[in-house]
Design a protein around this nucleic acid. Structure first.
Lengths: 142, 142
DNA sequence: ACCAATATCAAGAACTATTCTAAATTGGTT
DNA sequence: AACCAATTTAGAATAGTTCTTGATATTGGT
């Protein structure tokens, strides 16, 4: 079941404006691609996919669109090590699990009601505004 | 109190060989610099600092040395977003807290006895081998 | 101690992901 | 339809890092 409040389905009509960002043809297509396959594509992946609908789009435009979407909180930019940035339309707070054997990246959510200070020794008075969590490993050969 | 088992003090004699890595003059100096100021310097920071002791060292050599140290588990490479990699001699499992107002990066440790699955919804059968945690925020203006 | 084999270093070129620049295009508004 | 601002495009520029090559140093076997 998909939470349509935070992540619209790819079939949903994307409106003229989302979170104060005017949806141009390019931005709409880029966003639609992100909604279509939630596989955390890179800018270049998006570029290649979006060409089907907009053959004349440029890579710079894809970067522009992704930046606009990220800055308006519609899309999240995720960095793993020094690899190319990846993008996902799930803007709810979540971390990532990188399966080393398949390369697949899974979103992982925090259990409800858990507090950071429950399991971390934080500096006194630290106010956390942003969490970035990446796990690596394998999806068990049980 | 510093844990001399995982992080030697900068005054400690660095032996001929550490974890199977032969300590050349350059590697020893690079490592010493990391032990000296635990402020998560970039490769270029290290380069500038190490020049005092080895004026003829090249940036490429600093990269080589850092890579060797990282690959032998003596030093940890830390990436924040798409910034330059940073390096720290603390190879014990820990996360980072990035103070937005001062730019200072603090190491944060996990409370003992805590299990990942206590606060995360992990995919069934996931075996975690590596954790990367970065928090951002401010050190409270109380 | 000597020599060959091996590892390391230095310098700069090359590479990759991303950003910048400037000109062209688009879209909404008078 | 003309105007203006925003957007797009293509290619150049940039930053960080890696690669290549030849020089230098170190090790192990004699």
């Amino acid at each position: 079941m998909v939470d349509n409040l935070t992540v619209p389905s790819p079939e949903t009509e994307i409106p003229e404006e989302v979170s104060g960002l005017r949806m141009t043809r390019q931005r709409r297509e880029v966003y639609r691609i992100l909604l279509q396959d939630r596989d955390h594509p890179t800018a270049n992946d998006v570029f290649l996919r979006v060409k089907d609908a907009l053959p004349s789009i440029s890579l710079a435009t894809v970067y522009n669109c992704l930046e606009a979407l990220v800055q308006h909180g519609i899309v999240r930019q995720v960095n793993f090590e020094r690899e190319s940035s990846r993008f996902c339309p799930n803007v709810a707070e979540h971390g990532h699990f990188h399966d080393r054997s398949t390369g697949v990246i899974h979103d992982i959510t925090f259990k409800p009601g858990v507090n950071l200070s429950d399991f971390l020794d934080l500096p006194a008075g630290a106010v956390i505004t942003d969490i970035e969590l990446t796990l690596r490993g394998q999806l068990g050969s049980i």
